[in-house]
Nucleic acid binder design. Structure first.
Lengths: 190, 190
DNA sequence: CACATACTAGATTGATCGCTCTAGCGAGTA
DNA sequence: TACTCGCTAGAGCGATCAATCTAGTATGTG
């Protein structure tokens, strides 16, 4: 049984992911969460911004779990990269191009308007980078290069999501996945 | 001397780029454009959505001009790729991380909410892809591969913008640029 | 001059925005 | 029983939203 607070955070995360921060109203959030309106300001006295920052951190942490979930069982690093992008493509298609990155939309729209939310997004990205870099480093890639590869990979994924959602096609995700797989392969050789 | 209509479109494009579609009000647009409020609905009877779609197409076409502007004078393709990402990084830093991609924010937030605007974004991306692919094809890369490389490059650029804005660092743009330069270099060899 | 057209100007509309407020419910403690 | 406290419940606040409306001015055409 989920608590009211959790339902509010989850509903916020989902709505922010699909339509962004500004386009999502607090009324819509409590309706979607099947939560009483008063509870929102009880749990989040800082209002929409506090809720937004927490939703970003929560969904960011949840998405980060995909890294071990996909990389650990994979036979090798290159295969893992391929599977990560393929999984993203499948999920995007299955949700009719609604569920891309949980924080990218918000990251772009609030970076210049709310320092609190920008920091939340930055923390999530940094956490992803650290998690990805450690996987690359485990495979025998130097730490600095491992970090670079991870940043390149996240960038490729995020950008592919932008294109895929607008074009309603998974082609960008396939191409970005292959490109990054080849880049990682080369890093392992050299 | 710019016309009122042009000023409205330009101001919209700038505001959408920096804070997104939903967070930008029509009042804010006419104020920024120093245009009478009534003129907005005179020139754009379709309202905010029509204006938004036109702003996307206009700024998309403007941004596309950077492709020949950078690729044509460059000594070779790989150098051109490097310069493109470096230029994006410089501009982002100079505008205090405000001016990233002119359409990415809008593309993400409206893709599931307005088919009109999604199409405008898709058309712009397709146009960029075509323009970029022809540059790669000119350098001797097969058409299919040229298209793939361009999509990978745009994805890398867009994703790097997302990270750069959130992290307030040009590092992702530098890394994405180097990654794509290396990828193009390999495509020219193989 | 008369008259149409193109554009300006902003008051006003109803809806919705984020948020505050008071009232009350229900479980736990004394 | 009496009282506290965490939470529910939603009416209502002022502000702002996109959009419509009427009235006006400027310019060109006959």
């Amino acid at each position: 049984m989920s608590t009211t607070r959790d339902r509010i955070v989850d509903a916020s995360a989902e709505l922010f992911r699909r339509q962004g921060y500004a386009a999502t109203g607090v009324k819509q959030i409590v309706t979607e969460a099947q939560a009483p309106f008063g509870s929102l300001y009880h749990f989040f006295p800082g209002g929409k911004e506090q809720l937004g920052a927490e939703a970003i951190r929560t969904s960011g942490a949840l998405y980060e779990l995909l890294i071990p979930a996909i990389f650990d069982p994979a036979p090798d690093l290159v295969t893992a990269v391929r599977m990560f992008f393929a999984g993203a493509a499948t999920h995007l298609e299955e949700t009719d191009y609604e569920d891309a990155c949980p924080i990218a939309t918000v990251a772009l729209e609030v970076s210049s308007r709310s320092e609190t939310m920008r920091e939340a997004c930055a923390d999530v990205f940094e956490s992803w980078i650290a998690a990805g870099a450690s996987r690359h480093a485990e495979a025998g890639i130097g730490e600095a290069r491992a970090r670079e590869l991870t940043i390149a990979m996240i960038a490729a994924l995020e950008g592919a999501f932008v294109l895929a959602r607008a074009l309603r096609s998974t082609e960008p995700l396939q191409i970005a996945g292959e490109t990054m797989a080849a880049t990682v392969e080369r890093a392992l050789e050299g």
